[in-house]
Design a protein around this nucleic acid. Structure first.
Length: 291
DNA sequence: TACCAGGTAAAAA
DNA sequence: TTTTTACATGGT
């Protein structure tokens, strides 16, 4: 089945994919397509998103099973941030000393989102305190051990699968005792329906943030990280984030890492797109390293 | 070898 | 109430 996707222009799928993969450790070269196993109506399904020559992104789903077309489109469009309109951000940034040239270089760049907010929450927990590379390896083990395989890909583990995992098994993936508990607790709450993370899509940012903060293991950094990267709230920035502090210091400061307060001040001019501004700085930093 | 890396909750002061 | 501590892995 092939579904044509819409995404608010401007959108450069290749650039967005290249930026996303620049945050993964040890990758060599940029892929031409986004290949993922996702769950749709209870079944794992391999999908491939690619950009046609017309410039319009075209989604191709594997023909295994017969997925619901509308749901497939909705899931894929969510993952490529179709709803994000970059134009007002660009209008705001165009005359800025630093963001002006960067937004021109990276025109059409959108952040790619994890398929579900549960996955996003697990990403946040794994990335606490340790390097992105270490966290990535730990997640790979979680996915390999608890995810469902389909067409040579592996879907991110369901809350149910992680709820059934023993603490010993979680520890064997490289998690700390604390993080294994956080992931077990959250998985059981989501699997049992006591918490519905997908509901956050329709909540106000403040309400969603409050729900995130109620979960053990998710603090202020995780809340803002989930809000901007998982939920696409463009003004949210984790000001405690070491990576954002460093990149903002490099581009907007004197090169040294910024304090949370200084970071807040330096991003203030970009409201209500402070999170997108931070994303552009991070992406520019990563992509310029590759050359 | 050490030290730091896109934090958090719980203990100690 | 505020400050300190333990924590797991991977890259340099």
């Amino acid at each position: 089945m092939i579904v044509t996707l819409n995404s608010k222009p401007p959108f450069d799928f290749f650039l967005s994919l290249k930026a996303a993969s620049s945050f993964e450790p040890g990758r060599i070269g940029a892929a031409e397509e986004l290949r993922r196993a996702i769950r749709l109506g209870g079944a794992a399904l391999a999908i491939e998103i690619s950009q046609a020559r017309t410039g319009r992104p075209v989604l191709r789903a594997s023909t295994v099973g017969s997925p619901n077309r509308a749901r497939l489109r909705a899931a894929a469009e969510w993952m490529i941030s179709s709803d994000l309109d970059l134009k007002p951000f660009y209008r705001m940034a165009v005359h800025h000393r630093v963001l002006g040239p960067i937004t021109k270089d990276l025109r059409g760049l959108k952040p790619l989102r994890p398929a579900t907010l549960f996955e996003m929450a697990i990403i946040a927990i794994t990335e606490q305190q340790i390097s992105l590379a270490a966290a990535h390896h730990i997640r790979s083990r979680l996915i390999g051990r608890f995810g469902e395989r389909v067409d040579g890909l592996c879907a991110f583990p369901t809350p149910g699968a992680l709820a059934l995992a023993s603490k010993t098994q979680l520890l064997a993936c490289g998690l700390s005792h604390r993080k294994a508990e956080y992931i077990g607790d959250l998985s059981r709450k989501v699997a049992s329906g006591r918490v519905d993370m997908e509901n956050m899509k329709t909540m106000s940012t403040d309400t969603a943030r409050a729900l995130i903060l109620q979960q053990r293991g998710l603090g202020g950094w995780s809340a803002d990280y989930i809000l901007v990267r998982g939920l696409g709230r463009p003004d949210c920035v984790p000001v405690d984030d070491l990576g954002v502090q460093s990149v903002a210091g490099k581009y907007l400061g004197r090169g040294r890492r910024l304090s949370p307060q200084a970071l807040r001040r330096s991003l203030a001019p970009f409201a209500p797109f402070r999170g997108i501004a931070a994303f552009y700085l991070l992406a520019h930093d990563r992509l310029s390293r590759e050359l």
